[in-house]
């Protein structure tokens, strides 16, 4: 071993928690920089969500009150499908020129890449949701019947659900980066895993929109899945990326 041989700062691997977070912010800033120039990720996610919401609205008889019962499902499925498109594009920049390989050879801890991509995904999906929820409220006339404060809770549930989806989706998007079938494989693997998130999110949203605010158990469930997915993903991500 090199033992006590001193090395310049740049010739040591960065593995401490502060270094991991610094690296994550750096990856996030890099993604924002690239996104500002290309706008590919945001355009893909937002355009799909808007089109899907409009198509759902055109497909249902909005004069029928029973349609309103489907609104939570429509909202969550739209969000998850849009999110799966984001997963397909999340690592595009890293695939070109094997930039992922370059990152793995650098001093950066691989978990920084995971956390940076998680931030990017959360921001993209957050913006998409900020646009999708008002559209759903408008098209499905939710505002007329939803009690005050309901939309705030819906956003909270969406935030927790999005974190769980992004935490596990990010892991498989990176793992399947070099697969030609990744656009298919990522949703096929991720959707079954996030089914509990979808169920909890839909039930929570349905309850709140019908005036039932006894939803803390759903929120706890969403939070618990977030913690489980994040813990597993952070543990597995460095191992999955070796030789990717």
């Amino acid at each position: 071993m090199t033992g006590g041989r001193s090395q310049p700062p740049g010739q040591r691997a960065n593995t401490g928690p502060a270094s991991v977070l610094r690296g994550a912010l750096l990856m996030f800033q890099k993604d924002l920089h690239i996104e500002r120039r290309s706008k590919e990720l945001l355009f893909t996610v937002v355009a799909f969500a808007v089109i899907a919401t409009v198509l759902f609205a055109l497909s249902f008889n909005l004069d029928d009150d029973r349609t309103r019962a489907y609104t939570p499902g429509i909202l969550w499925v739209t969000v998850l499908f849009s999110g799966s498109l984001a997963l397909g594009r999340l690592y595009d920049a890293e695939r070109d020129n094997d930039c992922l390989g370059g990152l793995l050879l650098s001093a950066m801890d691989p978990r920084s890449l995971y956390l940076g991509k998680l931030l990017t995904l959360l921001v993209a999906m957050g913006l998409m949701e900020a646009l999708t929820v008002p559209l759903v409220v408008l098209f499905f006339d939710v505002g007329r019947v939803a009690p005050p404060g309901a939309l705030g809770v819906v956003f909270l549930a969406l935030g927790l659900g999005t974190l769980g989806f992004a935490a596990i989706g990010n892991l498989f998007a990176a793992m399947l980066l070099s697969s030609r079938l990744r656009e298919i494989l990522v949703p096929v693997i991720v959707f079954p895993l996030v089914t509990p998130v979808l169920i909890a999110g839909v039930q929570c949203t349905r309850a709140v929109l019908s005036g039932d605010f006894e939803i803390s158990h759903w929120l706890w469930l969403l939070g618990a899945f977030d913690a489980i997915y994040l813990t597993i993903a952070l543990a597995l991500f460095p191992l999955m990326l070796r030789e990717s």
Binding site: D96, N97, D98, G102
Partner: peptide
């Protein structure tokens, strides 16, 4: 330090 056939460069930067 590794110079490979792949550049490890972000084309949009």
């Amino acid at each position: 330090g590794y110079v490979s056939h792949q550049s490890f460069l972000y084309g949009a930067l």
